[in-house]
Nucleic acid binder design. Sequence first.
DNA 1: TCTGGGGTCCTAGGACCC
DNA 2: TCTGGGGTCCTAGGACCC
Length: 410
Amino acid sequence: MKTIFHVDMDAFFVSVEELLDPSLKGKPVVVGGRPDQRGVVSAASYAVRKFGVHSAMPLRTAYKLCPQAVFLDGHPHRYREYSDQAYAVLQRFSPRVEMASIDEAYLDMTGTGRLHGPPLAAAHKLHEAVKRETGLNCSIGIGASRLIAKVASDAAKPNGVLFVLPGAEARWLAPLEVRKIPGIGKVTEKRLHDLGIRRVGDLARLDEAFLDAQFGLWGRAMAGKARGEDAGSWFDGAIGEEEAPKSISHEHTYDQDTADRERLYSTLARLCQMVGRRLREHGLFTRTVQLKLRYQDFGTITRAHTLAHATRLDTDLHRAARALFDANWSGMPVRLLGVQASSFEARQGQMSLLDQEQEERWTKALSAADQVRDRFGESAVSLARGLKGGFRERVHENPAGLPGKGPRKK
DNA sequence: TCTGGGGTCCTAGGACCC
DNA sequence: TCTGGGGTCCTAGGACCC
């Protein structure tokens, strides 16, 4: 029987902001940007949640609900630092730690009893250590699977510890709303509600043939989850296994929709630079370049192109992205542009010796440019295309610079 | 309500090959 | 000509997560 901890920081971004500026404590605080900006709430303090504000809500909506709230752009680098500090604490409790995102982690605590005591005692020790060394509150869920640990940490919030005893999983889950099961989102919840299924217990009782007919394979997986099982789901698998990224992307939403071709080209160039840079940092070469276009009405298309040879050069990415854009842009005002790289290879595509030498020179030059950007800011170096009318935009775009809370690779 | 940015995984269809 | 079956690669879209 395994013992899994799920450690989840409470209102993480907001809590870090409170440490940086204690006068924020207890106030309604929203991290994510200014209320007149396009964007959504990244984190909401408990005080502002009372007004109905929650994460992923549009900032303008949050403002309407709570105009007196403090709206902050946030400090992504500081969040990273605090996350690293918390990670260092967790590592002392188990060598098998996995950051699932910037503010949550799984620990495999199986067999650590002699060192840390029984699960609840170990969790309290861990909870205290995190508080002492980072100043931050967290909640800890304990279970025999990742799934149970995850759902338990949510139930333990805020600032609590909850242990779901092995064998009691299904009974404990039964009264919870189906939405509490990770993987059941808005759409699946609606479909389940339409079928009269509201609680996890209702889901667990359904027969497999019915679930199969309604949801296919996903139906069986859901039924398994309803009984507290990870088996066969993406939740399954050892904790702490390093995984290489499968895609790298950057996108930008304009403050105001634009049909200015030069401006769009300039954004495209910058996005390709950012993607190329991260490819070089990871030592990866990409074969597939994808363009994302979102129009005024939120209608969104993606168009992909697979290259003959894997690359990590900005110029190659840009050529492909630009061709996709030219072939697919309707000419209507654009709300969002995005560039994604995927289908990674560890080596560059086959090419002649001469091309290879040239590629190496380019990569060196680009890596040097990456470093200059680090020291002097994003606008210090750029592709010729990016330069054209691009400065103003580069300086002022995305002032929050929030990285989001995507999965983190340790 | 007027909807970010960074990811993962899944499905489904078409091209192509044997 | 009236037609299968499997495998792989590629593309597009969508649900979901933080």
